[in-house]
Design a protein around this nucleic acid. Structure first.
Length: 480
RNA sequence: GCUCCCGUCGUCUAGGGGUUAGGACACGAGCUUUUCAAGCUUGUAACACGGGUUCGAUUCCCGUCGGGAGUACCA
């Protein structure tokens, strides 16, 4: 049997990192088994529809390297892939169930339902549909439907018995029918509910494995009942553990960023985010942690997916991002850094930027740090770190620096080694430690006390800039 | 409330009837070093609890507790 899996988000906003992981596991599983990965849009709730959300979803998935084989704009033979375009399909199937006696028309108003619920709650009973329309004679129901009375279609759940199924991740799960509600399948606006739409679409699209979040586990028995009512073969189910906030509740906005594009905007690499999210609930069984998409595909399996929820831990993501940045060459990083520099209005050549990236690569966490954490590569310092100044800028510093400046000015080549030997020989002549020149020089040319190798920094900055900044520092730091 | 799921360092996790319970992030110390990182070495830190089963349970069973999810004409 060929593997066909799907990622089926509702277009209610942006791609959530939890959604990214669900999509990723589906994708990995499909690719590993030479299967098909499908994107299906579950937009059956008109009130929650957000303009542009589908496009955004597709763009973000593509950014992450998760491309679908079938989906909106990429037709296989199972389209359309947007549920709002399949309304007639659901209606037909709901009616089929009515004919079989497995579903029935319900004319209860929302007000009555609300009232019933209230009473049940007050009486300490489980809130559940009371079956008011369950026994309506079919001809009467049909008459009321044709007369245009508002109605929904509900599934008829057996009063007893149980539903048993095997989840690829959780093993055997058993649920008693009697706790299941007569779920609405077709809403009064003619749209299906999730429960009808997934089952119908998963069957029609020949989905072999339903891989989704754990929040669907409790409603899976309803879906299984529907498969049985239709006489369809069951797919395999795999319910993924949830992604959690630091306080262990289901990952949500409010406690941090949840949109994939937020992480992208902050300068996280797609490789890092994918790698990180893959490891939230899965591991290869050994001690390797840094994985490429290809490696994930090669090694992924549901057997190695855990059952417990996983806290989304930014610290670890930061570390992984560093690792992936170090794995990339400066040239590969260039296209990511360039737009950020442009945005700042800084005008530097690609060649220069590559040298900056090379110097900073080992000390940034996110790509944005290439511009945020080292502005001295682009602008002369306007302020000087006070702590560093008081520690390293002594009374005799200006005269020492003046000597160094003279020698630097006369240099014909300004590579790191030359600058270093010049500085060291100057220190020797002055009978002072090299540190007496090194620290002030760093402060003068960068304004701060930390950063890449001083001599390489000087080389990249160039003689002209270094000379200018030393002179600036000597006047500015004198004023205080 | 009810139903279901889950429970190894703070976090992500490996492991599994007998182990010095392993790794990673974070944190501490050291080395390196012109600084900051990185890197290397190293330290602190975990089997939720109570009963069983067993020669022996962290591992298997039951219960308790804890956490989460679901309980809609939302997905």
């Amino acid at each position: 049997m060929s593997v066909r899996v799907r990622f089926a988000p509702s277009p209610t906003g942006y791609l959530h990192v939890g959604g990214l992981r669900t999509a990723l596991y589906n994708f990995l599983f499909a690719k590993k088994h030479g299967g098909t990965f499908i994107l299906r849009i579950e937009d059956t709730d008109q009130s929650r529809k957000v303009e542009g959300a589908v496009e955004n979803l597709i763009t973000t998935l593509h950014w992450a390297g998760i491309d679908f084989d079938e989906g909106p704009g990429k037709d296989g033979n199972y389209g359309p892939y947007i549920q709002s375009q399949r309304l007639h399909v659901y209606k037909k199937h709901a009616e089929q169930l009515i004919e079989k006696g497995k579903a029935y028309y319900c004319f209860c108003t929302p007000e009555r339902l609300e009232e019933v619920r209230k009473q049940q709650l007050a009486a300490g009973v489980d809130p559940k549909y009371d079956g008011h329309c369950r026994t309506l004679p079919p001809d009467e129901a049909a008459r009321r439907v044709t007369s245009g009375e508002p109605h929904v279609i509900r599934m008829r759940v057996p009063d007893n018995g149980e539903v048993k199924f095997t989840d690829l991740i959780r093993g055997e799960v058993v649920i008693q029918n009697k706790i299941l509600d007569d779920q609405v399948l077709l809403k009064s606006d003619g749209f299906p509910t999730y429960h009808l739409a997934v089952v119908v679409d998963d069957h029609l699209m020949e989905i072999s494995h339903v891989v989704r979040g754990e929040e669907w586990l409790p409603s899976t028995p309803k879906h299984i009942l529907l498969y049985q009512y239709f006489g369809w073969e069951l797919p395999q189910f795999a319910h993924l553990p949830l992604l959690l906030n630091p306080d262990k509740s289901k990952l949500s906005k409010r406690q941090g960023d949840v949109a994939v594009e937020d992480y992208r905007a902050k300068g996280y690499l797609k490789e890092a985010l994918v790698n990180f999210v893959a490891f939230l609930g899965w591991n290869p069984g050994d001690e390797r942690e840094i994985f490429s998409m290809q490696e994930l595909i090669a090694e992924f399996s549901f057997e190695r997916v855990g059952k417990a929820g996983a806290v989304f831990n930014i610290e670890k993501l930061n570390w992984m991002n560093q690792q992936h940045i170090k794995l990339r060459s400066a040239n590969e990083l260039l296209p990511l850094v360039k737009p950020l520099v442009k945005e700042k209005g800084w005008n530097v050549s690609d060649e220069y930027l590559v040298r900056v990236i090379d110097l900073m690569k080992e000390r940034v966490v996110v790509v944005n740090d290439f511009v945020e954490a080292c502005s001295y590569f682009y602008l002369d310092p306007v302020t000087y770190d006070e702590q560093a100044r008081s520690k390293n800028w002594k009374a005799d510093t200006p005269s020492h620096l003046a000597q160094l400046l003279d020698k630097l000015k006369s240099l014909t080549s300004f590579d790191a080694a030359t600058v270093e030997s010049t500085l060291r020989s100057t220190a020797e002549t002055l009978h002072i430690g090299a540190g007496k020149l090194i620290h002030p020089l760093r402060l003068a040319i960068s304004g701060v006390s930390h950063g890449p190798s001083l001599f390489h920094m000087a080389e990249v900055l160039g003689k002209e800039t270094v000379v200018r900044r030393i002179e600036q520092a000597m006047t500015k730091l004198h004023e205080n």
